[in-house]
Design a protein around this nucleic acid. Structure first.
Lengths: 219, 219
DNA sequence: GGTATCTGAACGAACGTTCGTTTCGCAAGG
DNA sequence: CCTTGCGAAACGAACGTTCGTTCAGATACC
């Protein structure tokens, strides 16, 4: 019933930052190494010395780029939430005015972001709690905005009669969850690449919303 | 798009062990306090001294009951997996032979377990990685067995033509995920109690499996 | 009088962080 | 062309604290 054990991928795969806003250099190298370490061992499980070792630096060198270990995490969490929100917003902008198309765009973007940046998804969702409130607040605000995008689309579709859903809140949570758990079981492969996965999540989401899918099963 | 921020509930609610297999006494008190601490701060974020303080004991006293901090976690993880697997197995046994009824039983049990024991769900799913392989292995084996139960039901329903699903693996993951993310957003209330929630998850699962739900939306 | 439980003190190791010094690329001055 | 000075970056050593754990002795119960 549970899902396959967490993949070694989070441990082994090179972490990649989604944002091009961070210029190359040591600061970016630190963020990428920290992303990998925090994703695989957790914030408390990865020490400054581990991070320095991965970078072939001495621990003290890190403090020329970040004021503390917590600020490294805060920066990752902030970048993750911003990339996520921006991805959803952009997808929605290009999706026309039909609720079904809008939902398709949101679910696709949500799934692609989580499938392509699993480490960032894990850090954003599991380690944000260790941040003091003032460092977590901006990210939490973005999170609510992203949730509001989905709720608005579902509510509009329901008002128009194209969605028929037993409970809007639980259904919205279910749709979000499809993407959120991806890093824990999904690995891209030829048999199931990220694009097919996104399509499948769109199909599952529409089914939950009571929209008739294609008459013949895809596979 | 994301889901509401993690509830204070994991921090504040008294942790309750699902299993009656652990007799009352200090050992049980340790497990319950550790469950609460590990769920709210993570294994590495909660120290032996924190645990002793919560129990009004001195750190050294814990070592009369467990050989190490890791063994406390290992016991929690083992109990969680065992309660989960046992819950699913029992539910399936009382569900007759129809795939739809079997799926309803599995999803109900899965949802109820996660909704009623959110701390244990969190610890089981997030902290199992810190265990050395030999301590994690029994739990991982149980996890695979539980996953197999769901897969078998879905495959049988598909073979009988009552389920129509674009991709069995992704759909199974989606159904599992419904429960797995519950601790992060759900709080029982009169407006949405655990029983309603389980029914909703059953309905969403059946929709994903292409089963016609009740003609009129429930709410 | 043993057995189970807890205390108090201590252990070495690892933690995040600080700080004075060194290294190095590079632009300006003679 | 060589020297000088400078700022950024990294080093090396150390700081005070907290970590998980050990152990001899006190206490209480059957």
């Amino acid at each position: 019933m549970s899902v396959t054990p967490p993949p070694s991928r989070l441990r082994s795969l090179k972490a990649v930052l989604p944002s091009s806003a961070v210029p190359d250099g040591t600061r970016r190298r630190i963020l990428e190494a920290a992303l990998q370490l925090f994703a695989s061992r957790g914030f408390h499980g990865a020490s400054i010395r581990d991070l320095a070792t991965a970078l072939e630096l001495r621990p003290s060198a890190l403090y020329a780029h970040f004021p503390s270990k917590e600020h490294v995490l805060a920066e990752l969490v902030r970048m993750g939430h911003e990339a996520h929100h921006e991805g959803l917003r952009t997808a929605l902008l290009g999706a026309g005015s039909e609720p079904i198309e809008q939902l398709r765009a949101l679910v696709r973007a949500h799934t692609l972001l989580h499938a392509n940046h699993p480490q960032l998804a894990v850090v954003v969702n599991e380690e944000i709690h260790v941040l003091p409130p003032e460092l977590a607040a901006p990210s939490l605000a973005l999170r609510e905005q992203s949730a509001a995008l989905l709720h608005a689309v579902i509510e509009r579709g329901r008002a128009q009669g194209v969605f028929s859903v037993p409970h809007a809140g639980v259904t919205a949570a279910a749709i979000s969850t499809l993407g959120l758990r991806l890093p824990y079981w999904y690995e891209p492969s030829a048999a199931l690449d990220v694009d097919m996965l996104a399509d499948l999540h769109v199909e599952l989401s529409l089914r939950m919303l009571g929209v008739q899918g294609p008459p013949a099963p895809v596979s």
